[in-house]
Structures are given as structure tokens and as C-alpha cells.
Design a protein around this nucleic acid. Structure first.
Lengths: 207, 207, 207, 207
DNA sequence: CATGAATGAGCATTCATTCAT
DNA sequence: TATGAATGAATGCTCATTCAT
């Protein structure tokens, strides 16, 4: 390993070290109490050092978002590889997203937080970068449906659109989780989610 | 008009004046730059005066949300009264929500912003109060479906759940509007929305 | 009762009403949270009304101090009347002051708070007025000692000075109550107080 | 002197610079007008800088108190070392305390101000730290009395209690200095103090 | 590379007081 | 007399960012 190479590795390690600290803070005390100086203290680095590895706070948050999306994608693809039957694959993907929203609530929250913000948080370049992760996830759903059509278990004229609608429904319902104790107080949220997934699969199932 | 009456009116006007300023700031510069002192300056009032009319910043934000939800509700109920046919009523409600998200983007944004925030912004009491508005909207959708079932045009074993799923899908898709120029770049968002609404109505239509 | 007289009475009642509110606030939430507007709310009066009866916040606090000193004086004089024997009277006065500092801790605290403040809180006139109450208390102690000397149970060349020293010791020790759990942690404060009172009385007792 | 060393010295100097400013403000304008921003202005530093050196306002006040107590202790110990005879040592300590209350009135005032405040100003930890200084002073008095007993010039069954009473009397009388021009207007305060100290020493002197 | 001292604008909130009604 | 709306300076404190070392 050359000097340059080793330096690059070390640089990546420092970045991770900083992101670790930021993530820990974010998940333990909430976004409002994540400040550069706190990250620095947690990472056992100087404040200035943080600024050497990240242009600003925005960049750190963006990186955390990407982490979350990547994790989600890896979970979905793992499921897809394990479950060959399209119908079950679709239900499985929905299930993975649901579990992600619970087991990785922190990532789910931060993704949604920035996604739903009507205000610009990231520079266009960063935004694009993040959106790409979403792209890959959506494509995976579409592929599942296409496979289902090929295998003759699904029937749908617009698989592209349906895949987006499918993910949109999941997303919207998970979003509504916040209303669990107020608007949806008489509703078991998980049952509602399952019901919806079945309804959607029914809508494209042959017969 | 008596003195008391006029005073009450004036008090209400001041409240509006403050909310106007807050709304303008929120929509023009983003939530992070809405501060009490900025609101005061915009409203041409002293800082203390703001606190005379609102207990704290939270209350101002809550008021803005309620404004938005009330507006949405009034739009939906107007449509419902105009359109007696359940199927068209459902499509109409979806359409109203879509237009609301465009024509009243500011309100739509702030509602979503707070809804998707994983962090507590409001005291339980305020939260409840806000959620009530959502309750009313959801009930209206359910009623439409129930009427449809009674009239024999819809068939659905769980109208309650379906109504939530219906709204969840709309919500999720509108949420995805943000991705219009990245993830969904080859998709006409409005067509996608319409497609989804039809798909949902198909799913409960008799035959 | 003439009009003037009734008006004077009513004015006095309003003053009491305000002081009641101020006292309640002071005793329940501490001096820092006693604000004019809070007093007004508690007294069910307008803010402006408070300013009609008291020139400013200072005057309200001064009035509360006077209340406390008057109460202490009344307690001491009651004891003095009940207990004719000088030695026991002296011990009784000490006891009354001790109990006052416990049973009327709020008054004791506010008196001390303002007394020990090195900074000017009250206008000279107010200050004087408050000090007069202290004067009366001190005189009562001196009288007790003088009576004791007359009766031949005490022997002291400078009864005036001794009375001040006597009260000063009581005062200083009660002041030290604050250190009960730190500096004086191994000391029973009440025993210490009693011990000191006896020591002082011993110092002037004949034989 | 190495870089590290010099930095540590500079850091200490900044702390002093801040405390100097705080002390000057406190002594010139009163506690209520000591605010962080005023300290900052006086010290010709930014507000943030103050917070870099002190966790909060409390810590600054605590530091000032400790300064005062340390100074008093050093004065007392110096006297104690110079004057071996217990009786004179006791009178000397009283004298030192008296002079401290005059020559270092500012420190005496701030110590008393916080000591007599019925309201919590310091966190337990800080409180403890401050009280420790008082502990040391009290112990010194006790030691003087014990030495006197050993030497056969004093006779006292409870030296521990007496030392507290002794200091309590001094403290109470100095507290009364405030009343010099009102309640005690016919009394020379210093003579009164001396009279009391002699009275106390008489009370434990053999024969 | 890494540091950490320094900054000062910014924040939400409180308050005594005034004054037109 | 009594009111209460209005004020704006003031408070303690935080923070992203810079820059000399």
C-alpha cells in the first residue's frame, strides 16, 4: 500500500469517526442538540478538525441520510435475493420498510425529516446524491413487479407507475404512524399497513 | 358596536397581523429563520406584544398549522356537498388535496413539515388540538365510502381502513413530489397521482 | 362613617388584597418569580391597578418585610407578658426567634434577604421605616435584662450592649442554619442554639 | 517555558481577567446589574468567550465567593501563626474578621449575600465546594480553643460548640453593621464588637 | 494535519412600567 | 379608579465558523 493510499484510508477513517459521533448524538439527544462542538467533543477531536473533513454541518447531515438510505437498500436487496416469488417479494419489501421504520427509526426519521422539509437544506449536488439512493430502491420494486408480470402472476399495464404508487402508499402510511395515538387511536397501525399491502397486491394479481 | 365588542375585534385583528407576519416569514425564508424578534419586526410590533397574544413560539406555529388544516377541510367539505356521487366524490377529494398541495403549497408544506418531524414540537394539548382537524378530514372520506357502499357502487369489508389507506396513498404521493426532478424525473407527477387514485377506486368498485 | 372614611377603608382593603397575592406568590414560588403581572393576576386586578396602590415593586417588598417584623415583635411581646421571670424571659425570647425562623421561615428569609443585601433596595425613607421595627424588638430585650438587674438575678455593667450582642448571637446562629448540612453537618443545630443561649445567660447571671 | 505551559498560564490569565471584570461590576453596581454581557464588555471580550472559561454565571459567582473566603482564611491563618497565646489569638481572629468586613467589604458583602439568600444559587457541588472554605475557618477557631484548654487558660466542656457560637456572634454582629445608622444609632459599632468578644472570652477563661 | 480560543449575532422569553381609554 | 395593551431593553446562553499557531 502506497503512502497516498494509506492516507486516503486514514482520511476515510477520520470521516467515519466523526460520523459515528454525529450519529450517536443525533440518535441520543435529537437534531437540535447536535452541534459541531458537541460532535468534536464526542469524537475526541478539535472543532477545527471537523471542518477539515466536512465543509459544514449540512454535509454531515447529508452523509447520515445517505447512510440510512444505503442501509434500507441493502436490507431490501437482501430480502429480494432470498425470496424469489414476486408476490411474496413485494410483501416482503413492504415488511422490510416497515421494520426499517421501527428498528432503524432514527435513520427513518432523519430521512423523512429532510425529505419533507419544504426548505432547501442541501446544495443541489448533495440533494442529487441523496436522491440517487431512492432511485435504486424504486427500481428494485419495479423489477419485482416486472418479474411478476413475466411469470404471469401479476397483471398491470403500467408497472412503473404502480411501483411508485406502491412505495408511496407504504411511505404515506408510515408517515401516519405519528397519528397513532390521536387520529388513528382505534386502529392497529401494523394491521392497517398489512391490510393496505394486501389490497395493493390484490389490485395487480391475476384473477 | 359596543366598546367591548370593538376591543375583541381589534384583539383578533392583532392576532391575525402577527400570524400574517409569521406566515410570510415562514414561507419566504424557511422555518429556521422564523424568530420572534423577526416576526415582531415584520408585524411592526414590539417583541413583548407578540407574547401578549401568544404564549410562545409553539403556539404561533400551531395556529399556522390549524389554519392550513381548516382550509383544507373547508375545501373538501365544499366539494363533498357539490358532488353527490360517491365515486366522483372520492376522486374529487383526491383532486382537492392535490390542488391544495399546489395552490396552498405553503400550508401543505408546513403541515407536512411538522407532521414528519420526529422531534416534539408541540405540547400534548396543542398536538391533540391540531390532530382533531385531521380527524375530521378522515371521517369525511370514510363517510363517502360508506355512502358508496350503501348505494351499492362500492364493496369493501373494511371501509375504515380503506379510507386511511386512501388518504395515506395520496399523502405519500404528494410527499414524493419533492422527488419530481430527481428520482421521478421521467414521470408526470399529476398523471401518476390520477393513475393511483383510479387504481384505488377500482379496488373497491363493484365488479 | 363618612364617604372619606369609607374610601380610606376600601383603599386599605385593596392594598391588603395586593399584598396577599404578593405574599402567596413569594412564599410559593420564590422571589424571582414575583412579578407585577403575576401579582395582578393572582389578585384579580389589572396591572395598572397595582401601580395605583404601590409606587413600584420595591414598595410591595418593603411592606412584606414590615409585616414580618411586626409579626415577630408581636410574638416576642406576647411571650414577655406571659413570662415574668427575666431569665426565663430571655430564654423565651431566644426560643421565639428560633421558632419564628422555622414557623415563619418565609418572613424570616425575606427579612434576612433584604437585610444582608449590601446593595440598596429601598429608598432611605422605606429603610428607616423598616428599621424602626427592629428597634422595638431590641428595646424589649434590653428591658428584660434591666428588669433582671433590678430584681438582682442579672449582673451586667452594660445591659444595652449585652442586649445587642445577645440578639446578634441569635441572629448569627440562625444565619448559620444554612450550613447545617455542610459545615455544621455533625452538629444538631437546635442544641447548638440552646447551648449558646445558656452560655450567654450564664455570662450575666449572678454568682 | 514550553508552549503548553505558556498556554496554561494565558488561560489562567483570561480567567482572572474575567473575574476582575465581574468583581468590578459587582462591587460598583450591585449584583442585579452583573450580567454576562456586561462582564464581557468590561473585560473587552466576546460573550461566547466568557462561556468558554466558565460554564455559567453561577460558576463566576462561586469563584468570587471562594476568592473571598480564601482571602479571609489566609488572613486568619497568618494571625494565628504570629500570635501563639490562645486568648490573644481568639481576640485576634475576631479582629481579623472585623477588619476583613471593612477592608474587604466587597468580599464580605458577597459572601453574606449568598449565604443569607434563602434561594438556591449554586448547584450542590458548587455549594459544597464553597462551604469547605468555611469549614477550614471554623476548624481553626476550634483548634485555638483546644490549645487554650490544653494550656490551661480556657475551660470549656464543649469547645466544638463554643467555636461555632463564637463565630456566629461575630457574624451576627457584623451583620448588624447595616443597622449602624438606624437601630444602633447611639452605639459605636466597633466598641460593641470588642465588648462582645471580651464577653465571650471571659465566658471560657479559667477563673 | 490538527488544534481550540475567540467571536458576536442570534435565540426565546420576561419584566417593570406607561398611558390612552 | 381601574384597566390591560404595548413596549423594548435586558437576560442567560448557544453556535457555526474562522484562523493563528
Amino acid at each position: 500500500m502506497g503512502v497516498q493510499e494509506r492516507k486516503a484510508v486514514e482520511k476515510q477513517q477520520r470521516r467515519s469517526q466523526i460520523l459515528d459521533a454525529a450519529r450517536m448524538l443525533l440518535f441520543s439527544t435529537g437534531i437540535d442538540s447536535v452541534s459541531i462542538s458537541r460532535i468534536a467533543k464526542k469524537a475526541e477531536l478539535g472543532v477545527g478538525t471537523i471542518y477539515f473533513y466536512f465543509k459544514n454541518k449540512e454535509e454531515i447531515f447529508a452523509a447520515l441520510q445517505e447512510e440510512g438510505l444505503s442501509l434500507l437498500y441493502s436490507k431490501i436487496i437482501r430480502l429480494a435475493k432470498k425470496e424469489p416469488e414476486p408476490e411474496k417479494q413485494l410483501a416482503g419489501i413492504a415488511n422490510v420498510y416497515y421494520r426499517f421504520s421501527e428498528e432503524n427509526k432514527d435513520y427513518f426519521d432523519i430521512i423523512n425529516y429532510f425529505l419533507s422539509s419544504p426548505f432547501v437544506f442541501f446544495e443541489p449536488e448533495l440533494k442529487q446524491q441523496i436522491d440517487m439512493s431512492g432511485h435504486k430502491i424504486l427500481k428494485l420494486i419495479r423489477d419485482t413487479i416486472l418479474t411478476g408480470i413475466q411469470k404471469g402472476v401479476f397483471k398491470e399495464a403500467e408497472p412503473r407507475r404502480f411501483s411508485i404508487m406502491f412505495f408511496g402508499t407504504l411511505h404515506g402510511l408510515l408517515h401516519f404512524k405519528k397519528l397513532e395515538h390521536t387520529v388513528l387511536e382505534n386502529e392497529n397501525h401494523m394491521d392497517l399497513y398489512e391490510y393496505s399491502v394486501n389490497k395493493l397486491i390484490d389490485a395487480i394479481r391475476c384473477q
